[in-house]
Design a protein around this nucleic acid. Structure first.
Lengths: 213, 213, 213, 213
DNA sequence: AATGAATGAGCCTTCATTCAT
DNA sequence: GATGAATGAAGGCTCATTCAT
């Protein structure tokens, strides 16, 4: 019916893209297989044929998105000083979060899963979240200095990530509160970087003066 | 069957409490009326009897929670200097977010709504979120100084709120990544306060030196 | 739509009767809930409301049929000599098997379950089959005499039950092979009784002569 | 994927064998084409390719099984006296029923069809069942004598066949009721033969005495 | 001759909602 | 005021079948 003419050898991929969109828009439960198949131009039984289950499709969507994201993220900012690497990282993070990346629904999906975990995130945590946190931990350690205790470092990472994620999670709120303002990823990233660098530098200063004094 | 004997004039309230819990745990769609009525010890038709709709019940739950929260939140920290008022505010915010407050599900519900808005938040935004943001804006303005432009001030508010909210949204992630660590609201609030104050003070310093220099 | 007018307080029972018929006619898998509800004049969701599951309904049908059968079967043939009790038993058994009893589908259902056990028969075996076999064992023992070994007695019970069940299981075959003949339960029961008594009496004679000789 | 290399001209036969097993295990409706093709190592479209239908495959399975059985069954017991021919026949029948024959699923399939006729048995009845019944009728006539009326003879055949079939149909029941006992085809056949011969001989005696007296 | 991707019908189940009591 | 039996719509899933290759 739909999709007449060619044979579309990549129904599976179209299903993944459609499922990503639908799940991002409506959530896992509200996103129906019918809608997914409709958008993919496929039969209603296509999901069950290519993936086994709605749930398996959901898991596969995450794997697919992660894979696509990994293809895009290149070695940004190799060989820069720590502060500039932090700046680059935040810029990329905020950019991706505000929908500049390719699979626009990836971030939304992750935010959803974080708000209402469905149990299929254990792998996601290890593959996506932990590497990021460890990368940031090293960066923050370099900037804040070796004297800052580990727990402090970690909370600084949380502070940075929290500032970035805020623009993802609170987007509808911000749109409602300040409807006129445009979200400029560059400006946001610049602010977060400055805000955080100020705090980290001050932390190093305080730590050093308290130790060396 | 349940609730024999008395007339239970407070069925309505028990339904609200039960609905709050259920919606917080399972979300709007996954939270079934049957479960809500079961927990409230009420008949399955009670929801449609007392409230008109599942949706109306949902809206009423928000109104109810806001009302309860308003009863609790008193005028904390009146008459302190700005930095201490910020400290007090963050402490209260983080405390409430980490489940120290009474209706434990209130914060969860809001976080859910933010992640997946169902359209009944317009009122919520105006009644709950905007006052908080405006209060914080004034605080940040006081600390950062009058020279900082408005957009900057606003983003600082976002940075503060983002740091706090992170511990709500990312709770399951953090529990998975760092299972051994305990979340201490006091320590967290202290860190966020210091981190933010460092940044704000530095901002004032930079702004003043660039203007007065 | 159906069932207008009264309120039909016994939808549950009508569902049980309808389910009994449908499962007997079509089997568990082929018997659809839709057909059951249609015959019961109930909504398609009625099965799920009154019973939880199709499977639970199926189990309940067996319980219900057993209960109805127990109400009917009275203490037939108390105080008769063994041979006449056997005659009475076979007559009742064949009569029930050939559909003279009330829930005509009960026997069919059991035959079906025996041909393709669905796992919910463990209870059935203990409650229905074992008592019958033990009753018959005692009867056969009385007739064949104490000298016949236990295994032999048991196989005689199987011979009797087998002859009776044949008219249930092979009904369609017989109807196809001998379409003109009518199945007369009385004549059948009389034949089985004579056939079996002849064999049992001969067994006693042989046993006694071989022992006492 | 499966079955690479060769051309597998015997796919059709493998499908028949697999279908026989699957239909015997699960029944017609529950036995899926997918399972059949999987076991036969064939493509999922193979059934619809080699046979037209699932139903046609089912019919073909019966024809195939009958053909195999016919190849095996030779002219047992030619030239014996009637009683010994009956003994031989019962022994062969019970042996086949208890799974000693080659296509183990053949008997199960027939038992299934008898319990739940699917309409494709008309041929089966004529080709398999009627010859057996006629053979037995002649045997019983010889043993019971010419004076016994035809209806009586026929019911004796039913008694014999019923005793044998019982061990097929009631197998799971017996396994549940008497789990320790082993089914010995030889002993069973011997019992059925003796039980029946006793009854038939007595019948001849009674008939003769009542007629000639 | 044979494949496997794709189809569409149909089933079981869930769930919010209504209605007579 | 409150109950609970009953409803109907909709979703996920299975499965036999078809079609282009």
């Amino acid at each position: 019916m739909q999709n007449t003419g060619k044979r579309s050898p990549a129904t599976r991929q179209r299903l993944l893209e459609a499922a990503g969109e639908v799940f991002a828009e409506r959530g896992y439960r509200d996103g129906t297989i019918q809608e997914i198949c409709r958008r993919a131009g496929a039969n209603i039984a296509a999901v069950n044929y290519h993936f086994r289950d709605k749930q398996s499709l959901y898991a596969e969507v995450f794997r697919y998105a992660h894979q696509r994201a990994a293809q895009q993220e290149s070695g940004i900012a190799a060989g820069l000083v720590a502060e500039d690497r932090l700046r680059a990282y935040i810029r990329a993070f905020v950019g991706r979060i505000l929908g500049e990346g390719r699979p626009a629904w990836h971030g939304i999906l992750i935010a959803r899963e974080i708000a209402q975990p469905s149990g299929m995130l254990d792998r996601l945590y290890e593959e996506e979240v932990r590497p990021r946190h460890e990368y940031l931990e090293n960066l923050v350690r370099e900037i804040a200095g070796p004297a800052v205790p580990r727990g402090r470092i970690r909370m600084c990472v949380f502070s940075i990530v929290g500032q970035c994620m805020f623009y993802r999670n609170a987007r509808p709120v911000l749109a409602a509160l300040y409807p006129k303002e445009r979200m400029d990823p560059g400006r946001i990233a610049e602010h977060i970087t400055e805000f955080s660098l100020d705090a980290l530098r001050e932390m190093r200063r305080a730590e050093e003066s308290s130790n060396h004094g």
